[in-house]
């Protein structure tokens, strides 16, 4: 999978790169002001999810990783954008999974045995959850209260809901995994905006040089994170 650098640039991303060589290489823009203007005028447009699906991913990921006293949640971190962009990668098409049949189900400890790749899990899973919530609550997932949304996510995680051919638990794990990836991956992929995920954890990102902090008797690492592209917090 190739990293994609050709998305509209985020303000914070641009700010961190001003005057660096990598900014000019990465942006493909004639000038950074053009990039800023383009970003303000055109917020991220999903290319895999439709509007309803994207609202679901935004709402559900925010419940899984909510904004709280610790720091930003999935929405502020750009998790939905991250997941949408991941859907255009070989990973989402299951190109590194063994997907030859027959598909025979067995004990859970022998691992995933469904014929669905991540793109299928989202398409079928979201449709299934929307169907379930309309049946039980009379409206779509994104329009429910946080308490109701948590009820549904708890039911999915616990395995009591089947979403068409996709077990609710499988869809839940897919969504949880990708949400956490979006919160903590390098901002290159659209999530972890402003390095907010890394700041919360105290992870220094791409610094990757800790010769001076191998053993400081338990003192916290003093420097803020940087990203692969050079963005700093």
């Amino acid at each position: 999978m190739e990293p994609t650098l050709n998305r509209p640039l985020r303000r914070s991303f641009v700010k961190g790169l001003l005057g660096t060589t990598s900014f000019w290489m990465a942006s493909g823009n004639a000038s950074w002001t053009a990039a800023l203007a383009a970003e303000a005028a055109h917020p991220y447009q999903p290319t895999f999810f439709d509007a309803m699906e994207y609202r679901f991913v935004e709402a559900a990921s925010e419940r899984l990783f909510p904004a709280d006293d610790n720091g930003p949640g999935a929405k502020a971190l750009g998790v939905a954008e991250f997941i949408d962009r991941q859907m255009q990668t070989p990973y989402a098409r299951g190109e590194n999974w063994y997907m030859s049949g027959p598909f025979q189900q067995g004990p859970a400890n022998l691992g995933y045995q469904l014929p669905f790749v991540p793109r299928d899990l989202y398409r079928n899973g979201i449709a299934g959850v929307e169907h379930y919530t309309r049946q039980h609550y009379g409206k779509g997932f994104a329009d429910l209260s946080p308490v109701q949304q948590d009820e549904i996510l708890t039911a999915l995680e616990g395995g009591s809901v089947q979403l068409g051919e996709v077990p609710g638990r499988v869809f839940f794990e897919q969504l949880r995994t990708n949400t956490l990836e979006g919160a903590f991956a390098d901002p290159l992929y659209g999530g972890n905006r402003g390095l907010g995920g890394w700041i919360m954890l105290g992870f220094p990102g791409a610094r990757a040089d800790f010769m001076d902090w191998v053993n400081q008797e338990g003192a916290p690492y003093p420097l803020a994170p940087v990203s692969i592209s050079g963005e700093s917090a």
């Binding site: 999978m1 590194n96 991956a185 692969i228």
Partner: peptide
């Protein structure tokens, strides 16, 4: 810095066997 990208590396399994 490309080699220290966790998503592309250990998570998407850049250096591991392609099971497909």
């Amino acid at each position: 810095p490309e080699s220290i990208d966790e998503l592309r590396g250990a998570v998407r399994k850049r250096l591991f066997q392609n099971l497909s």
